[in-house]
Simulated scan of single mutants.
Amino acid sequence: MTVSSKVDFRPASFQSVAWYKILTLTLAFWLGASLFLDLVMMPSLYASGMMSQPDFVPAGYGIFWIFNRIELLCAALVVTGVLVQRKMSSSSKQSSVLLSILMLLAALICTYFITPEMGALGVQLDWFESSIAIPNGMNQLHMSYWLLEMIKFVAGGVLLGWTLDPLRVTRRDRSSAT
């Protein structure tokens, strides 16, 4: 039997296995749902011409209001899962806590600052004006949103990679044993 120099990230107990699964599934769901919203749903609404409709702002705000609450739930589960993994396994990465808190902060900023500001800027207060112009501050808010999304995707991708790493170690161990 050879001694491996790699750190073993496999869960140590049944509780750790449950949190390990919760963390992995939550990260995969959260990042997948964000990609769907950012790369499929919003571009489809834009291409269909819905952004030029006066009802787009309330509809968009409603979509993001619901999605932001789901993101906050996912962020809470990720932070909790990382803290549990950190407590139960001394070999877990220290920066995983920082990455999970960074993801939580991105979700909080989107939920309580960017989405309400975009909704407020996009509300058409002059009912007699037929053309809809994009407000000046909207582009800055879009840039802030995409910056936070990139931070979330990078941090989430790294965390997901770290949670999937034990599966690769286990698969390698099984294939070398046969």
Rank of each mutant, 00 (worst) to 15 (best):
A133M: 05
V79M: 14
V123M: 09
S100P: 00
K93H: 03
G119P: 06
I151L: 09
V97A: 08
V154W: 08
L160F: 12
M118I: 12
L99N: 15
S96K: 12
L98Q: 04
L141Y: 03
L141P: 03
F153P: 07
L72C: 09
I114R: 06
P54D: 07
F56S: 07
W162D: 15
G122W: 12
L83V: 08
E71I: 00
S131E: 09
V97H: 15
A155W: 00
S48C: 03
S96D: 12
K87G: 02
L72T: 11
N136I: 09
Y61A: 06
S91L: 13
S144V: 02
S48K: 12
S130F: 03
S52T: 08
L159Q: 13
V158E: 07
L147E: 04
F67R: 08
K87I: 00
I70F: 06
R69F: 11
V97S: 10
S52C: 07
Q94P: 04
Y112K: 10
K152G: 10
V82F: 00
Y112A: 15
M41S: 05
V84T: 07
G81N: 07
I151R: 02
S130V: 06
E117T: 07
Y112P: 06
M51C: 02
V123D: 07
F153L: 13
Q85Y: 10
M41A: 09
L73D: 02
A47D: 03
N68Q: 11
S89A: 09
L73G: 13
G122H: 10
C110G: 11
L83S: 05
A120E: 06
K93W: 00
S44C: 12
L159W: 15
V97N: 15
S95A: 10
Q94N: 12
E117V: 05
D126T: 09
L105A: 15
S90C: 01
A59E: 02
A76E: 07
M42L: 13
G119T: 06
G157L: 14
L73I: 10
G156Q: 07
P116T: 06
T163I: 08
V78N: 07
S95W: 14
L77S: 08
G157H: 06
I63K: 09
N68T: 01
G156K: 05
P135Y: 06
L98D: 00
M51A: 00
R86S: 14
G81Y: 00
M143A: 15
A59S: 10
S100K: 01
